[in-house]
Design a protein around this nucleic acid. Sequence first.
DNA 1: CGAAAGACTATGACATGTCATAGAAGTTGC
DNA 2: GCAACTTCTATGACATGTCATAGTCTTTCG
Lengths: 145, 145
Amino acid sequence: MLSSIIFYSLDRAIRSYRRMAQATIDRAGLDITIDQWLVLRVLLEHDDLTQHDIAERVFKDQASVARILALLTRRGLVSAVPLPHDGRRSQLRVTEEGHRILDAVQPIVLQNRALALAGVSEEELALLRPVLERIALNCTPTPGP
Amino acid sequence: MLSSIIFYSLDRAIRSYRRMAQATIDRAGLDITIDQWLVLRVLLEHDDLTQHDIAERVFKDQASVARILALLTRRGLVSAVPLPHDGRRSQLRVTEEGHRILDAVQPIVLQNRALALAGVSEEELALLRPVLERIALNCTPTPGP
DNA sequence: CGAAAGACTATGACATGTCATAGAAGTTGC
DNA sequence: GCAACTTCTATGACATGTCATAGTCTTTCG
């Protein structure tokens, strides 16, 4: 039955893409992971988010985001300055070096997407998206009352 | 643009599914992960595969398979008896306990798939699969000569 | 035969996923 | 203003993903 393997195909597609994408970034001599890049992108556009907010945007766990932020900070791609009005949080900003990496990765990501979607029409993509979102929704626990 | 978020949707769909699936297995009191279950299933049907063969079937790395097999063996779901004709390998077999777990997990997995695909038609699935396989193929490095 | 080449498994190192929780800091309600 | 609750971050524990490589065993070939 089709449904019996659709999740396997899903898994395979996304993992193939991630492997390929990471490989192109590595080959370009850029020392950053896909996941770190994702978080860095979010920080570029919003510098006032909690780790939980960031996690929601990149669909990760707060714990994962905490570790990724620690790595980004350690590598000097993000600066963290304690916020005066909330002792728990820090002001996170993409550094100059962070901007350089973002700029260098951006065209690679675009190329990767194009490569991955070669031979896939816009119509097919248009059909794909609602199905994927339906699956995600079906699998998301309803936040009980 | 659609293509700019399709991979995000893909990622979200498969992760949502995996979280939900693991949660149902945990709730049933079964001490096994999705990935361990996948490998166990393969062993049930083929007991003469190398780790590399298994890895291909479940689309994992050989190193991951090695660790999963070690866990399955440690938990008594798989037995490993050194092969006489090849000192590197072992004969891997699903134990009684392994069979019990497989039997217990099977209906849960079927339910999970149905739940995840609620509201998705067979036609949509039929459209989805070739696109996913196309993406996987596009992202797979051609084994050079 | 014996050495080089290849196959197979195990493991180190690091990043991430997930759950759980500790510890610190803010908020609410009385 | 204090206690209870909530929010936020950090981290421990364990599983997996990925790359690289060590160590063992097999096959090949000169």
